[in-house]
Design a protein around this nucleic acid. Structure first.
Lengths: 138, 138
DNA sequence: TCCTACATTGGACTTTGTCTAAGTCAAGAA
DNA sequence: TTCTTGACTTAGACAAAGTCCAATGTAGGA
């Protein structure tokens, strides 16, 4: 994650305490927090940090390609720090747990030309849904 | 669509003017309205209809499996009346236009067992993103 | 026709996110 | 080190999308 801060400084990012704690909160591989969760965790490290700054910082990190926005439930967006490796998501329909997964095959190639309606198709997002082991057991 | 109303009555749905106009608005194949758009169009046919009723009715139609919720942009959910035929969505990243598409292959099968983490995977949602012909031309 | 359980209504409320004006501060210049 | 300046942060107002509730209305069976 210090890599991240270095990279961002290299791109002219002014390095503030607020941005540092947001980056720190997002450190870790299998984390998909909402903006509010990021704010709560950041506030634990830096109590005065404001919601607006968290939203701003998340937005910048998305623009810079350092994190990804994921909306799996039509409610709050979640932020996925694992942006440098292509992956898709597996979501528990009951508790909402999210896991990063790697389907086989070329998902983009599965949309035949006659189903593209002249679009220049650039990306594909896949969400698998089902019951996680915990919820299936309960 | 009168089929729909018959089916719902068969399931004990009380048939009110409000529900009738919501169903009427959703009639048509390639329509993906937001709740607000449904409300606006329903109000054109039945001016006193309230937002709460539109939300209630859409929610019931989703539960009954007659329409599908689609959230392609992290903002308002959209409602897809084409719920009886499996399909996925192709979305223009610029103007937001949505088309129903039919990828080849078995998308569910592309998630290998070792990538399922014990989940009972039941469904897969795919969103293709790109520029529609109009936006690509502009 | 009457009854009643189910449906509708409007408005308050919640959640998620955006915007703005005023104040603060990181980092380069001197 | 201190100064300067434009980028950054803040609190709170605002907006969009959706939920909830108590009061009222009504579809459809008896």
């Amino acid at each position: 994650m210090s890599d991240l801060l270095e990279r961002l400084r290299g791109r002219g990012w002014r390095l503030t305490a607020q941005r540092r704690v947001v980056a720190e909160v997002l450190d870790g591989d299998h984390v998909h927090y909402t903006a509010d969760e990021v704010h709560a965790r950041a506030a634990h490290l830096l109590p005065e940090i404001s919601r607006a700054t968290v939203y701003n910082t998340l937005g910048e990190l998305v623009s810079l390609g350092e994190i990804m926005e994921v909306s799996t439930d039509g409610r709050a967006k979640r932020y996925d720090p694992n942006a440098h490796h292509a992956h898709q998501h597996l979501v528990c329909s009951q508790c909402g747990t999210i896991r990063d997964v790697h389907p086989s095959g070329d998902l983009l190639a599965e949309l035949p030309p006659e189903e593209r309606f002249g679009f220049q198709v650039a990306a594909v997002e896949v969400t698998y849904r089902g019951l996680c082991p915990n919820c299936a057991a309960g």
